[in-house]
Nucleic acid binder design. Sequence first.
DNA 1: TGAACATATGAATAAATGTTCATATGTTAA
DNA 2: TTAACATATGAACATTTATTCATATGTTCA
Lengths: 106, 106
Amino acid sequence: MENKITSAQHTEMPDLEVLFDLADLFKVFGDSTRIRIMFTISDNEMSVLSIAEALNMEQSTISHQLRVLRQNKLVRVRREGKQIYYSLDDDHVKKIIEMGLDHVLE
Amino acid sequence: MENKITSAQHTEMPDLEVLFDLADLFKVFGDSTRIRIMFTISDNEMSVLSIAEALNMEQSTISHQLRVLRQNKLVRVRREGKQIYYSLDDDHVKKIIEMGLDHVLE
DNA sequence: TGAACATATGAATAAATGTTCATATGTTAA
DNA sequence: TTAACATATGAACATTTATTCATATGTTCA
């Protein structure tokens, strides 16, 4: 933080630990099932079964992957009766996906 | 593209194929060695050996990972004599990393 | 309380992935 | 051409990871 020149293209290398965290974060985005889940719940929150049906996958598979998303604070969780509703945690997540999409689609 | 309402939170689900490509792209960012390589060459282009030395890793390891970055069009390559210099392909790549950093550091 | 439903989780398995070692390919200069 | 150097690559190995099956946990309603 000692040397912050606005116009510089100089990129300070973060601590190793941060770089590991960063890689771990991207790892979460690096699975098509999780990406599909994120798109599925990007408009409205959805229950686990609804997501599984929408993607035509096993409830267990979705649940396992939702746990990964939860652990990485990428989704919000809300219980209502028997169901548990998941939604994207913030627009931050959407932005990361959009950045990636830009690169893929260009 | 037919329905672009600025305030809408509606996110069209891309084709399955695109989602796979997207996951594959993030997979590339999801490894700490590749992340470190990208940071290392984000300021100046560097030769393979220099990168290996900077990260204190085997030349072979770096070369294998550079291939992954190359295949995904994340780096530029330039040969000069015996050495081959690598640099980040565009600012796009930096932006993706920065978005991720924001999330990790918050 | 017990039945029905929704979700989470542990164990097992198959597939993907990163690193290393040995070596091939490519380049330069004598 | 040959030696020396830089980079790339194939095979092997260990590790990680996603999915499935079976079942546990938690909630509602009769």
